[in-house]
Design a protein around this nucleic acid. Structure first.
Lengths: 359, 359
DNA sequence: CTGAAAGCGCTTACAG
DNA sequence: CTGAAAGCGCTTACAG
């Protein structure tokens, strides 16, 4: 049963078909209207070179006239260009993921691609295998967001025949060399943030970590290397989840230690939770403890105190990722723009260390 | 050119096909393996009743064995069940939208549906028409998120032949009667929040409004009706956008008026911006002015002060929306669970009105 | 209950 | 440069 929407002020009408026609206009209708064979119509649709300009124009006019749109299913089945990406991701709502998805969608839409989504429900091999199988439609391309275990596994489980690009963490060594992967320099970002905090006079910096089973957390790596380079002690990182609550819990633990004066959050939500915990524990931010976040989500600037953080432009990265995919499918496509660089955004949540006698 | 991913620890191997086979297994392969005609395979795939149980089992075993998955394109072309929804929406990142999308995706995945996304780039008739045309694939169903002008226009521009459900604002009168639409009771939610503030002793409540061109803002309607019912003055609503910055700007204006002691934000981001503005203007929250948000995004609980807000469960609504769609396609499908009710979550950002001589 | 036929709307060689 | 042919993998009547 098909539902018919009620009153229809903006009803789409092509204006030329005889209103009662139930099926959409096909390549044959266009051919008839233009007075050519339907194969010729196919040629002009696909930009085949050997078509006389005059007949090409004729066909285009008919296409325009009839409001013809090629049937994607038929096209896919016949092995034509499909122009569709499906993004394989473990999440669609967390900041980095949703912003990346937004960028991918924008770029895909601009290129005339349809976009599909498939979320990875777990990192179990069977689930990964199933998700990959379902996402892999014959002519369609894939983008995988490989920011945690499930995504990483999905990326490596891809059949070798599918065109696929990926948003990944910084590859180790030259692993990313020549691969259609894009990434943000999380290591530099974390190091910048850590150095900034150290420069404020803090003895060391603590780190509230985002999850990273099965891969190395480059944010953690950057934090550690900056600490080591400065000869500062390297405290144990506090493992958290992705959301403010886990930051809050980590913050409660950190607040109990009077030696803690500076904390780097693995993302802005974690930083928010940590700030909240400090507040409840009666530790002033940034008076007693300085906090820096990661990503610069739209809320960061309006938190109280306003969150100092390091901006990572996931939307732009998503666009670059799609451009990379397009390049794979069509080597004449424009090269992806340079990937975004991290940028430290100084606001209120971090300040000079107290000149203390202790520690 | 197709890119081949490097080392492949988790390579998906069905284990039965002769490794070098380039094309996926088809209905014919299954038929050959099971010793039946391919039409019979089609019948068991589609759960056709007239198949001898023993041959059904034979075919199923072969399907399992070969790791067969029907080609969606072929299926669509032949007019079979497509099992795909594409969601038409003006946004994928704002809280209500992304949470709704998440719910839709979860339910769709559970039902074996593929999900597509198409974002509406503007409310221009030409763009709406184009987006609807591109989103309307022959056998595929649609869900439109009609929370602002573009979505509302898209919903009314749908061709009558497509199966479509929608997440909408509260319909006027009986317009929503019998339609495959789901909605949250924004009016009640806003009235509850307003009444709560009034109950705290505030003389009246101001409202920072989300955009609503071309439709009535039910949050505003609920706010106004609660004010009127209580005999409180109804101040002009302050028009905002969707993000914290616009709430901040509205907040700056509101902060300049000493008579303002209570504000309802059209969403949590707006409330966050308003709180920030109050803070900068030296007006304590909730000491000088009380603020209540809308939606209860995950960050709300950890803001400073923690945001009192009215929770709207968009993810659950998204699931209900998909269930509604499924019902449309298959009347034997389970009825959608009851829609979520708004729930006032009292935290710290609203408090008793100051016992003042003025006003 | 199960085969053989026809066709979904397209594309890609193959002839002219 | 442009037709006519064959086929993509499936489904739905039509015969048996």
């Amino acid at each position: 049963m098909i539902y018919v929407t009620g009153h229809n002020p903006c009803m789409v009408v092509t204006g030329h078909t005889s209103a009662s026609e139930p099926r959409p206009v096909s390549i044959r209708d266009v051919a008839a209207a233009a007075g050519v064979s339907y194969q010729t119509v196919s040629r002009v649709i696909n930009g085949h070179p050997s078509v006389k300009p005059s007949t090409r124009d004729l066909v285009r006019a008919a296409i325009e006239d009839l409001g013809f749109r090629p049937n994607r299913a038929a096209r896919a089945l016949a092995g034509g260009p499909v122009q569709s990406v499906t993004v394989l991701t473990a999440d669609t709502t967390r900041y980095g993921y949703r912003a990346g998805l937004q960028g991918i969608e924008e770029a895909a839409r601009a290129a005339g691609f349809a976009v599909g989504i498939r979320v990875l429900e777990s990192a179990e091999p069977a689930d990964i295998k199933d998700a990959v199988a379902r996402a892999t439609e014959p002519g369609a391309a894939l983008i995988v967001i490989a920011y945690e275990k499930a995504g990483v596994l999905a990326l490596s489980a891809l059949p070798p025949t599918v065109a696929a690009a990926a948003m990944v963490g910084i590859p180790e060594g030259d692993e990313g060399e020549g691969k259609p992967w894009v990434w943000l320099d999380d290591r530099k970002a974390a190091a910048d943030a850590t150095r900034y905090l150290l420069g404020l006079g803090h003895h060391t910096v603590h780190y509230a970590a985002i999850p990273s089973p099965g891969r190395v957390d480059q944010r953690m790596a950057g934090w550690r290397s900056a600490l080591e380079a400065a000869g500062a002690p390297v405290p144990a990182a506090v493992q958290c989840g992705w959301n403010p609550r886990s930051g809050y819990e980590a913050g409660l633990a950190l607040a109990a230690d009077p030696a803690v004066t500076a904390i780097l959050g693995g993302n802005d939500d974690l930083a928010l939770g940590v700030m909240r915990a400090m507040h409840e524990a009666g530790r002033a931010v940034p008076g007693d403890v300085s906090i820096v976040g990661f990503d610069d989500m739209p809320e960061a600037e309006f938190m109280n105190p306003a969150l100092t953080t390091v901006r990572q432009d996931f939307a732009r990265l998503g666009r670059a990722c799609f451009a990379t995919l397009l390049r794979l499918l069509d080597s004449s496509a424009a090269a992806p723009a340079p990937w975004p660089e991290p940028e430290l955004i100084v606001r209120e949540s971090a300040g000079p260390a107290r000149r203390a006698g202790a520690s």
